[in-house]
């Protein structure tokens, strides 16, 4: 990825963040904090890494993506819309009864969603299933998933991790969106899943630790994941909950609450200023 491409992706990620704020604000509900923390990973996967075709969302040989932390649907929907799966204008219908943009990802309603999620722990298991199916059929697609760190408290996650290692699913790469916060506060205070990297390793996964907001690191980790044979890969991404909107950053309160008009304006102004700055830099280069 050259500097120009990277700059373009940064602008894309900022646009996704802007959509997230608009979606959650229009719905007066939803989950901005965790959507913002995994935005850069989503942007990289859909715009740089994954073999997908928005005009054929069910293409059999496509790479699959499962948002195991399904409550971050605003981030996924914004990414899918930017990628061309459905009109960006539809995003403000998020969570409304007249819209197809269901509160948590729905594979039967939303184009581009590969698995319905929302009940934590189930998405990573479904991703394991997709990877198993790829092995059975000898297809060379890859399966990607994003897990939340609070989600690790669900026992099913560990059942899934055990199965992925047992069946040597090297076509499966998961990201841990390690933002450190869950609804009731710091994950270390609520129910600590730490030390996460050691646990993943003990469960038979290759672990790569990165900064989840740095595209160079995301790119390098994904290259390493692609080259890894015989085991699944967990990319532990250190992230900031609420990333990109300063008053939301590292605040557990923004896990599942929507900005009011004033807060929306403040957030959008900050993101727009960022987009303007990035575009100016792009013009200079």
């Amino acid at each position: 990825m050259d500097t120009k491409e990277k700059q373009k992706l940064k602008i894309r990620a900022a646009k996704i963040r802007r959509h997230i704020i608009e979606e959650v604000h229009s719905a007066s509900s939803g989950h901005p904090g965790g959507s913002l923390s995994c935005t850069d990973i989503l942007a990289f996967l859909y715009f740089e890494k994954m073999k997908v075709d928005p005009s054929a969302p069910r293409w059999a040989d496509r790479d699959r993506f499962v948002l195991s932390k399904g409550h971050c649907a605003p981030g996924l929907y914004a990414t899918l819309a930017e990628r061309g799966y459905f009109p960006v204008e539809d995003l403000t219908g998020f969570r409304s009864a007249d819209s197809y943009l269901e509160g948590h990802p729905s594979m039967t309603m939303v184009p581009g969603v590969d698995m319905s999620t929302g009940s934590l722990g189930q998405g990573i298991s479904a991703a394991v299933g997709m990877a198993l199916a790829g092995k059975i059929d000898g297809r060379d697609y890859n399966v990607y998933a994003i897990l939340g760190d609070g989600e690790l408290e669900e026992g099913q996650v560990w059942e899934a991790l055990m199965a992925a290692a047992h069946y040597k699913l090297d076509n499966l790469t998961a990201f841990l969106d390690h933002n450190g916060l869950q609804i009731d506060g710091n994950i270390r205070d609520v129910m600590s899943p730490e030390p996460v990297s050691e646990k993943f390793r003990a469960f038979g996964w290759k672990v790569i630790n990165i900064n989840g907001h740095d595209f160079d690191q995301i790119e390098k980790a994904l290259c390493e994941a692609s080259a890894t044979k015989g085991m699944p890969v967990m990319i532990v991404a250190e992230t900031t909950k609420g990333k990109g909107v300063s008053f939301m950053e590292n605040e557990a309160g923004w896990h599942g609450s929507a900005p009011n008009k004033e807060q929306r304006d403040l957030a959008v102004a900050e993101i727009d200023a960022m987009i303007e700055k990035l575009e100016a830099e792009q013009a200079e280069k």
């Binding site: 189930q122 298991s125 394991v128 299933g129 198993l132």
Partner: peptide
């Protein structure tokens, strides 16, 4: 044997994994 998968004593994972496999046309 190539289309039989033992998921171990982990029924929750088995059911969601079944969904993932079925989503790939199985």
């Amino acid at each position: 044997p190539e289309r039989f998968i033992n998921m171990g004593i982990a029924e929750a994972n088995m059911m969601s994994a079944a969904a993932g496999i079925a989503s790939c046309g199985k």
